[in-house]
């Protein structure tokens, strides 16, 4: 006669499965982290900027005590940045000024008005490259003309290629990060230079889909 406390075959099987799962579970996050890797495909080609995976941010000093970050949510354009063929390199970016967001409505309105960007009169910021110099396969300097607030001036970005390779939908993508520091007074934005810094760090995170 079976003792009531003796485990059945089913109970033993389920216990074994639970133990196996418990042992395997801690390894899952590590496996997921290891799964991400930089794609090192050929970045040559013409790319259309993917606005969903691209962003422009700017960092500005506030009252000499902090740095605030704002962003432009909309970006469009195209690029071709093959380090093996610098002469063919070109970048063209357009950013609607009214896509600005600093996470505070009053400040957004202030920035979009005549105090700073004057989005009504100057609705678009744009950049067109004139020269690319690569220091290595994945890092270089991108020079071009930045038009902001109705003023066009040469600007040089430090660029870093993140990666290039196929996406899960049958396309091919590459991505870059470009940073530079501009003086807003160079672009005619002179208001309140004692409270809001003149120097502004601009960063473009761009992902493109090969055409």
């Amino acid at each position: 006669m079976k003792n009531a406390n003796t485990p059945t075959r089913f109970t033993r099987s389920m216990t074994g499965l639970a133990l196996l799962a418990a042992l395997a579970f801690p390894a899952l996050p590590a496996a997921a982290a290891d799964a991400y890797h930089i794609q090192t495909g050929n970045p040559a080609g013409n790319y259309q900027i993917d606005p969903v995976h691209s962003m422009v941010t700017f960092t500005v000093g506030h009252l000499g005590v902090s740095e605030l970050v704002g962003r432009f949510d909309t970006i469009s354009g195209s690029f071709s940045l093959d380090s093996a063929n610098s002469d063919q390199a070109r970048v063209s970016v357009q950013i609607p000024i009214d896509s600005l967001d600093t996470n505070f409505a009053q400040r957004n309105k202030d920035l979009l008005g005549p105090d700073y960007f004057n989005a009504t009169q100057f609705p678009t910021m744009s950049f067109t490259s004139t020269k690319v110099q690569w220091q290595s396969r994945n890092a270089g300097q991108l020079t071009g003309n930045l038009t902001l607030h109705g003023v066009t001036r040469p600007v040089t970005f430090n660029i870093r290629r993140i990666g290039a390779g196929p996406d899960p939908w049958g396309g091919y993508r590459s991505g870059y990060v470009a940073t530079t520091t501009i003086k807003r007074s160079d672009f005619g934005m002179n208001y309140m230079l004692n409270g809001i810094s003149d120097s502004i760090l601009v960063q473009l995170n761009i992902e493109g889909k090969r055409q």
Binding site: P114, Q121, G150, N190, Y191
Partner: peptide, 14 residues
């Protein structure tokens, strides 16, 4: 004093 300088030719409406 407020705007920092006179812009000639004028850049923005103000």
């Amino acid at each position: 004093l407020i705007y920092g300088k006179f812009t000639l030719p004028p850049l923005q409406a103000l």
